[in-house]
Amino acid sequence: MTTAAELRRALADSTTADGSMTDPAWRAAIETVPREVFLGDAFFRMNHGERGTVWEPVRRTDLDEADWLRLVYTNDTWVTQVDGVSATDASGPLYGTPTSSSTLPSLVVRMLEAAGIRDGERILEVGTGTGYSTAVLCHRLGEKNVVSIEYDPALAALAADRIHAAGYHPVLVTGDGLDGYEDEAETEYDRLLATCAVRTIPRSWIWQTRIGGTITCTLGGWMEAHGTVSLTVAEDGSAEGRFTGETISYMLARPHQRPPRSGFYRHPGQARTTAVDPGVLQDWTGRFVAQLAAPSAELMGVRGSVALVDVATGSQAWTEADGDGWTVHQHGPLKLWDQVEGAITAWRDAGAPDQSRFGMTVTADHIQTVWIGSSDGPAWRLPA
């Protein structure tokens, strides 16, 4: 039987081969940290049911140990909680939204490398999750240099048990990671790293990161578009940086998730033709640009077209094929498609660059903008 240690080495080999991992120190961590400890005895596997995506629990007791370990060390994300129900507690398949997962190891490493972490630095990790990435950080930096905060008390307790079982004892905190964490001994971190997505950068993150330190996180939103950015904190309390271009996505921090919405009805509204093919919203950067333009809108697919619904005002826009082109219908106080069309046009006029050409500025008075090329290029302000 192939041992867990051999599977860890194979995982490290594949993660290095695909370019996700270049730093030997992270390779040593991936070869050492036992992922099976952090998955426990069950996780969910995605399938398709009559009402959409269904999450089926996969239990360790139902598999040979060799098969279980092969799944554990597959470079894949395994969902561990759906709508607050853990895979261990699930009595059967569930419909719902994932609320915690063990992220695929290559993505964990890509995020760590994007943060540019160096030996001896003090790290605040926002989003402990299963605790796997926390343990990887501990292996590289030493447990005394790692602080990790988790919003969900049940997840925090379980992660603490598993991190300790793996032999690491960092500072573990249960609370809202958007507030960061200030202890009595030291309040500034060299690096802040978020393993959840945020719609905007919390002010506390900038206050708690030292001058010249960095904040690395995924900027997300209600269209489920993402961009990974690394910001450097300046002496005046501002921060600026560029997007990495990495196609990394994380679950939104729970306080940043969209509020409940009633059912969608396609209102005929005001119709016009549009020169923007709605298929551009399937492009990684195209959808991100659309989200910047309409940050409080949710994106849905509706019978072969796309629909935007503004969560705050109920405004909507939906498209339908019209011969060789497209017609858009808009209803409500916000002209959502006008906003998206203008942003997509500005992006295309700039050469339709990928996210590596994008940057972000947070001013000292906490106005946040995302821009293309330079801060005086096309720009969009994030919600307050």
Rank of each mutant, 00 (worst) to 15 (best):
E6H: 05
T16G: 15
S20F: 01
A25L: 13
P34I: 12
V37F: 05
R51A: 14
E56S: 11
E56V: 15
R59K: 14
R70D: 12
D89N: 13
S91H: 14
Y95T: 14
S100R: 07
S100A: 14
S102Q: 03
L104D: 06
L107R: 02
M111D: 08
R122E: 11
R122I: 10
I123T: 06
E125N: 10
E125C: 07
V126A: 07
V126N: 05
G127E: 07
G131H: 07
S133L: 01
T134F: 01
A160I: 02
G180M: 05
E188H: 13
Y189K: 07
R191E: 13
V198S: 09
R199Q: 11
I201Y: 02
I211D: 13
T216G: 03
A225W: 00
G227M: 12
S230Q: 14
P255K: 10
H256C: 05
S262P: 14
D277M: 09
G286L: 04
F288T: 09
S296C: 06
V306C: 04
A312R: 13
G314Y: 02
E320P: 00
G325I: 10
W326Y: 13
P333F: 05
W337R: 04
A346I: 03
P353I: 05
S356M: 02
R357Y: 01
T361I: 11
A364H: 12
H366Q: 13
I367S: 12
